[in-house]
Design a protein around this nucleic acid. Structure first.
Lengths: 197, 197, 197, 197
DNA sequence: AATGAATGAGCCTTCATTCAT
DNA sequence: AATGAATGAAGGCTCATTCAT
């Protein structure tokens, strides 16, 4: 009995395996055989579904991006005020689904690889733009445009900064601490400007 | 043309070449032959002086670390007040010698690789600790201990965050902008606490 | 042409090729490419099936050992008397399947390599022990224990000695001559003791 | 002050170093750098004095051969009767100067290498011939020609056999045991023929 | 749909050897 | 007399990729 409709299942399994393996090793220098093995299939099958290794890597990153995007979307929908929108964007980046050691490691690996691969860089820019616009959607009502821009940039840098710094820590990353420090900054800035929350 | 005393020259040339090549490619996945070729020597010579590839990589990172350390030292000596110390530490990380595309790329590559290599991780932790203590040396006189700790952590994250974000930009990184945003945060926080500058 | 179930065929072909090449060159310093080429496959495939070069070498030696072991077993089963057992053990070591130039050369190469490789040494000791016990199974009924031990040791030394000496000869080794000289010694010793054949 | 007359000293030191290193590693696969290092000089100097590596190896073997030859000569001169000559030849091969682990290992390595190198094979044949004629000089007066030939060949095989077998043992080789077993054979054979000692 | 078989290309590393000093 | 400097050549090994089944 020929198995039909396996394609989406296999693709998903391979992408999950890629995240797991890349996360564990903290590098894109993992082999196709490792990824395929983790997914329980042969490396030939991985090529069958994704073509070259780079394509699987890209698909994996796209998956991460999509997941983050939908998480952000959900969080933003639940926000009632502009200030809550800002908090939601920050929180989602440190949510248990995102801020796991393996995901963090994978993100960093992608950042580095992006310098060689225009396609990966393009994808990361998509993410950066979206993060920026998500933040701005909350900040614009609270601050003058220029200050909002600055603040969005600073928050984004802090998020990435905590990601990269946690990568050095052993053990579980401390999401709550990171959120607290960023929120602290947001509060301070908004208070200083007598913002209309 | 003298043929003696080449060792230090070659070692230095190879490390410089390593930074250049790693920086260009944004990855430690460069070949010994590339690095050696850039330095104008054979790959065999690189092995002769450094042993394995990993050793050259480590030496390169140590070099970067040392350079940053001495830059920081110099900058700190010139600072007259605690507040100036904080500014000096921030500034040095974005000085023209440090915040160049190739150096930035190399740093990121090291961060990622650190997850696989305990030795590289150790080196990065040294850097992190030093950055922290340098910042604290300026913050302690200005803030209560706990707040100083938090602030040091936040500043460090912002520095790393701007590094990683600049890696995505094409063209020259904007050091001044990054400094301004971080300084802005520092000012805000110190003002808010009515600190004794 | 079937493309499945190649593994045992390839493994065997590679081991045979290894014996041939090592035999020709009289040294383990042959390249994987040479062995693989002789077997008609790429060196990558040799690594695929055996891992490292050392593993192929070990497998090859194990093969030689196994073959000698089964030859000896067959020969011993055909022996009717203790005296015939002794003769069988001697004969089998100089049988056309064992006492060929390439096999001899391979054995010597293994002996030498054994001094560096504990694993090879272990394997050679297995062979030595088996030869000893095979000889003893025939000698014990014919001689007092101590004399039997001595004789077994001497015969073993003569076998190895003729092997190493034949390695220097050009052309076909003279198996019959070696057997005759060893048998001569056995006869002499047994006669001298008035043994019960 | 220029050092003069260093050549013979250096050559000797390098040959001794070669024996030591080859003996330790039990293989000719040692590097020129290792040998030179053991002799306390640079590898370039080894090339200066010996040319290629093969030349040093040959010189080393020639040295071993010469030493054994002069040992044998001395021993033979002290022998009063033909029977003593036979004993002397046997004994000299197991004397403390010859039957040391490192010398044994070196000999075996040479035997194996001889299969690749005509020059080394030639040297080993010289040794074999000399051993044979030394033995014959004692056996001819004691036995008919044909029997003497056979016996010389057998003794030679036993000597080489004990060498190769000792290579597998750990620890100090047992010279006395080997001599006893060979002498035992000699006695037996001579007694059996009612020889005229 | 899936895989074992197979390989070419490339990289790290070693080492004998040469040369200028 | 002696050596540090330097390299070409080669080998082991890995890995993405293809192909026939």
């Amino acid at each position: 009995m020929p198995k039909v409709g396996m394609e989406p299942l296999r693709r998903r399994a391979l992408i999950d395996a890629a995240i797991a393996v890349i996360g564990e090793r903290g590098s894109l220098g993992v082999t196709m055989a490792e990824i395929a093995g983790r997914a329980g299939v042969s490396s030939a099958l991985a090529h069958h579904y994704f073509g070259a290794k780079g394509d699987l890597i890209q698909a994996t990153m796209r998956h991460l991006l999509t997941e983050l995007g939908s998480d952000a979307c959900t969080a933003l929908r639940a926000a009632r005020t502009p200030r809550e929108r800002v908090g939601a964007v920050i929180a989602v980046n440190f949510s248990p689904t995102q801020f796991r050691p393996e995901t963090i490691a994978a993100w960093l690996a992608f950042y580095v690889e992006a310098q060689q691969s225009p396609e990966l860089r393009r994808l990361l820019k998509v993410y950066a733009r979206r993060l920026h616009s998500d933040l701005m959607s909350g900040l614009i009502p609270l601050l003058p445009r220029v200050e909002a821009e600055h603040m969005a940039e600073t928050i984004a840098a802090m998020i990435d900064g905590f990601y990269i710094r946690r990568a050095l820590r052993d053990g579980t990353p401390n999401a709550a601490g990171a959120i607290a420090l960023i929120e602290d900054f947001v509060e301070l800035r908004l208070a200083g400007l007598g913002s209309r929350r």
